[in-house]
């Protein structure tokens, strides 16, 4: 039996909202963690601004560790941590925690690759002017890499939309959850189609917006 989409709309809208909120909050925290982590990976590496071999190895190891775990496993594996941080292991808030753990190391890698694209000659020029490492980070690395950073964070955002589909496992809700529980498990084909269309629209919008901002900050 197919559900009547007309009466099902509120549920779809609610799920859309859940997806957006989950992704937005997870993204915010993932950037707050991933950006400094990515910067640290660049400055502590060999011949970096603040070269620190042991620290680099530790950070690099942590990032690789979290990047190797499939999200669905991560989701379950860190349940105790989730419960500790948000006080519950079910619901939208509980889904955000693993999403952050999933996305922050990914963003760190993307930030790292963006910053490594910055011309080392410009960094050297700043050093020759007597810039402090901190000045080099926020006056040279970040502005010079801004356009590329925006594009990379767009990629991470879309990755988060994908991962958020699995949030249903902890009762996190969202469009992916809807597609699985109604569209897949109950064979509600029309729900499946609508949710997929909505996900496509969200991804397209995010990418278009990312391209636009990246171009705008690029200065010509």
């Amino acid at each position: 039996m197919q559900v009547d989409l007309a009466t099902f709309w509120p549920k779809i809208l609610e799920a859309t909202q859940e997806t957006i909120v989950m992704v937005a909050i997870a993204l915010l925290f993932a950037v707050v963690i991933g950006l400094p982590l990515g910067i640290s990976l660049v400055v502590t590496r060999k011949n970096g601004l603040l070269e620190n071999g042991p620290l680099f190895k530790v950070l690099n190891g942590i990032v690789n560790f979290f990047r190797s775990i499939p999200f669905i496993i991560l989701l379950v594996a860190i349940l105790p941590i989730t419960r500790f941080i948000v006080g519950t292991s079910i619901g939208t808030a509980a889904a955000v925690v693993p999403l952050v753990f999933f996305s922050a190391p990914y963003i760190a890698r993307l930030v790292e690759s963006s910053l490594l694209e910055v011309n080392p000659g410009v960094v050297e020029a700043a050093e020759s002017m007597g810039a402090t490492p901190w000045q080099i980070i926020y006056r040279v690395f970040l502005p010079e890499a801004l356009s590329s950073l925006v594009l990379n964070i767009t990629i991470a955002t879309i990755g988060l939309v994908g991962a958020s589909a699995m949030a249903g496992f902890v009762g996190g809700g969202g469009l992916g959850d809807l597609a699985i529980s109604y569209g897949y498990q109950r064979f509600e084909t029309n729900v499946m189609i609508v949710t997929v269309i909505l996900l496509v629209v969200i991804v397209q919008t995010v990418q278009t917006l990312g391209n636009y901002i990246s171009k705008a900050v690029r200065r010509r």
């Binding site: 020759s128 007597g130 010079e144």
Partner: peptide, 22 residues
Amino acid sequence: KLRKERRRIGMIFQHFNLLESK
């Protein structure tokens, strides 16, 4: 102190090394 002293020494480069975003 070295950073302060570097203000007394200007430097130019083969590939100019200008900030592209500025």
